[in-house]
Amino acid sequence: MARTAIPGGLSARRAWRSATLADRRPETAQAVTLVLDVPDWPGHVPGQHVDVRLTSEDGYRATRSYSVAAPTDGDALELTVQRVPDGEVSTFLCDDLRRGDTVEVRGPLGGWFVWRPGQPGPVLLVAGGSGVVPLMSMLRARPAGSASPFRLVYSARSPEDLLYREELARRAAENDGVEVGLVFTRSAPEGDRRGVGRLRPEDLTGHGWSVDDAPTCYVCGPTGFVESAAAHLVALGHPPERIRTERFGPSGP
């Protein structure tokens, strides 16, 4: 049967699983990382997402998709959820879900916007706002000492809106082939030489990051951001087939 070729088995990927909140870490004033315990989690590829389903006491159900924020780690599944004003699922997950509470998850999902450890060549990650979450899963999956350099260009409204701020600074300081470039659209730290403004083509270039280095590019963020960033990459000469995108929502960071 063909289905035996599907990793984790067909029913495993399709099934809704019970997931228990094991831990929660605030990331910013508006975002939290949830660590869910999912018994027999089959593992996932960096960049994949899960569907999260909530069921209220009266049977009403709501389902939303969230990127996984970290590589496979046994039964622990990390999601970083950005609070959306009036969003019924994100506000519940950010404000009301307590340790020991359960939700349902389905996945891992999506085979397009993924980076497979072992995939050769440099990687250029371009994030707008909470679009950094699946890219962080890729960055965290990069083995120490890897020959594949990674560069993350991360656009956020302000320094206070940065997810994973300390970890990104630490990874960039390790001199292990990870570069992080920050772009601020509303307010920048004092003395920031770039100044404030939306992503510009020159933000995507840099020493060792020319088109000739042939990086695979992953762009994730709100729709307007993704379209503009992908257009910049194409204009710089990156072939469209090496640009992968994931977009959500209408507004930019």
């Binding site: 939303r64 994100s90 999902l109 699946p134 959500f248």
Partner: peptide
Amino acid sequence: MNNESAADAAFDGNVMAGPLSEVFAVD
């Protein structure tokens, strides 16, 4: 991926992976 947003929000086909997995045996 963080698909809770305003009405008429534009996502992309990545978000169809879950619903399609209920019907199809492959991604």
